[in-house]
Nucleic acid binder design. Structure first.
Lengths: 224, 224
DNA sequence: ACGCTCAGAATATGATCAAATTACCGCATG
DNA sequence: CATGCGGTAATTTGATCATATTCTGAGCGT
């Protein structure tokens, strides 16, 4: 009887609660309402997400380890507020890693990969044209993560994930303030390089994309 | 019966249990007996470290997020076994970040910093001369971490921490197998560069150190 | 071999304890 | 009399634990 006893509307493969909390929180950090400097409390999340204490604690620990949340002395956890200096450090690492991932993806991208990326980029363009900030953030993230997956370099890919988590909230406020028009989009260039299997061009396009994005955040934050 | 919660950690400022467990586990991964491929269980640690379940869970999650532990499908957690490909990825990031930290440290190192580093390096030499593998690992790690602290770039420094956690177990087995004689030590060169405030020489020395270390692990692992 | 059951380990809950911030109140003072 | 201050009470939040529940894999019987 326990073989199918759980068929009560259970469509997907059962994910652990801490995993669900982690993903939810992660999405909120990247695309949601969690602004830099904002406090995150365990008990607030347990009531908000209707989850137990332990899963929430674990999700928070995990995000702290990834740099997405910061521990402020007295047991207080906040979304980090980035300084220009922080941006420079993130920039340095992104410049070292993401072009490399682009190069590797160049050699490995299948036709399906390329059309999937093209489809994401189309959605991205639509979001930009429509001034849809949330859509821009989501699709841009999807594009880069998909590209990183293609590169088959899990250590580098996870590393980049954690970098994005760090600057995500800042990118969001900056984008929200200035709109989607001025945003970087070297994706067309990247797609052409992938199709031509030209690793150098792909890397150069990625450098441009990273550079524009980081400089955008950097100068916007220095206005504060 | 057990109400001694306040007179327990008398060593220093009352650290939370999960923090103590984390550091213990981290030290075991870097310097202890946790070999690549070895399984790590929650219940094993609760009895071993005489800690509760929740702190152990949190420490493990944190280490997993840092890449020091790996989740193997069915709720099983192990110390990762690195492939040559993994080493290459770690190498790439270390090459991008650690020389930069050395450069920054060059500009910021005080006299006390330099003598502290020199003292650590002396202990390191003693460990190498005495064939003390554990001492080598500990002092080498201390040297680099101290240098990274001087550089005052917390994001880069934390990143390097997590990279060391990844290759720590492999470095340990390789060092244990081949002894301390053949190990890299560009530290003298680094110290001289710091004293002369020559950022380029410091960066070059660090590149050499990283290169030797990673190549050492790489070729030793490919023998397996 | 196949399926079932059971032991053991991981996951999750809620209670309980400790710490810290906030709220509040009386007192002294201008 | 209003106002600021110090200290204590109350509330909020984090940390830990004991325990219940769920899941996995192995052993056993058919």
């Amino acid at each position: 009887m326990n073989l199918q006893a759980k068929t009560k509307g259970d469509t997907s493969a059962r994910l652990p609660a801490h995993e669900v909390v982690y993903r939810t929180l992660r999405d909120r950090i990247l695309f949601g309402d969690l602004a830099p400097g904002q406090a995150v409390t365990i008990q607030g999340l347990t009531t908000d997400l209707k989850a137990g204490m332990t899963p929430v604690r674990e999700a928070i620990r995990r995000l702290m380890a990834e740099g997405a949340l910061e521990f402020m002395g007295n047991r207080r956890v906040v979304v980090p507020r980035l300084s220009a200096e922080d941006i420079d450090q993130l920039f340095l690492v992104r410049l070292a890693v993401e072009p490399e991932l682009a190069k590797r993806a160049c050699a490995l991208a299948t036709d399906e990969d390329q059309s999937a990326l093209a489809a994401i980029d189309t959605d991205l363009d639509r979001a930009i044209a429509g001034g849809d900030v949330h859509g821009y953030l989501v699709e841009n993230h999807r594009f880069h993560m998909r590209l990183n997956t293609i590169a088959q370099a899990p250590i580098l890919s996870e590393l980049v994930d954690s970098l994005w988590l760090r600057f995500g909230p800042s990118l969001r406020v900056v984008t929200g303030r200035f709109g989607t028009q001025t945003l970087p989009d070297r994706h067309k260039e990247l797609l052409r390089a992938l199709a031509a299997r030209d690793a150098e061009v792909a890397a150069a396009a990625m450098i441009g994309d990273v550079e524009q994005g980081m400089m955008f955040i950097r100068q916007a934050l220095s206005v504060d």
